[in-house]
Amino acid sequence: MDQKGISVMEPILSGKNLVKRYGKVTALDHCDFELYPGEILAVIGDNGAGKSSLIKALSGATIPDSGEVYLEGKQVNFRSPIDARGAGIETVYQTLAMSPALSIADNMFMGRELKKPGVMGSVFGQLDKKRMQDFARDKLSELGLMTIQNINQAVETLSGGQRQGVAVARAAAFGSKVIILDEPTAALGVKESRKVLELILDVRSRGIPIILISHNMPHVFEVADRIHVHRLGKRLCVIDPKDYTMSDAVAFMTGAKEAPVDA
């Protein structure tokens, strides 16, 4: 039933005929992609299927050789992740993209620091540390990461789950249109994964659609609204997690089973 509902809706982020080659390797082979408003779309696929290339093309980290990317119906040409960020697409990379020696607040505002009002800000470029710290603290406690006591502690003193939490909080704080999460639970323990999954659902409940790349089938089936199965550089099918089992999904992405035709 929601299959029909979705098809009427306009995708918020979509890719058409995306191609990316690295030398002789074709990472993206005329790949299509659609993300609809308010949903969690999981992207699954075997290693080397081209998931990362797809995500990088959508987030501006690589420039596709051909094909178009549309954001809210308008074509966009991201030259860098900064462009995509400017357009409201935030990505949480598997490496988290944080500077370990710098503080949580510094990291949350890296590349978009707030300056003090008046002369101190405009002439001397003085940072408004107080405002940045308050904002960071607010965002962390909004997502239930209140247990981080000192917003000025270096990121390297945090556990893996806490770092992931800070990275998700950063994306949620600034990502106005789309948030992309690349393997958010891969490096985490069971409890920490749970917390991150709760964070993901929490972010969706604020109406921000999420692209979730993951290898972890239980996590994917738990939170995703739709699952994009990627195989050999293109979209094999999109399935509803309620209609298929995890074994089916694995069978599709490894080619052990034919893809359903209706998708």
Partner: peptide
């Protein structure tokens, strides 16, 4: 802050928007 971030991890700094 960018100088420190670049010295710490240039790739992370780049992805974070520096």
């Amino acid at each position: 802050r960018h100088v420190y971030a670049v010295g710490d991890d240039p790739e992370a700094a780049q992805l974070a928007g520096v």
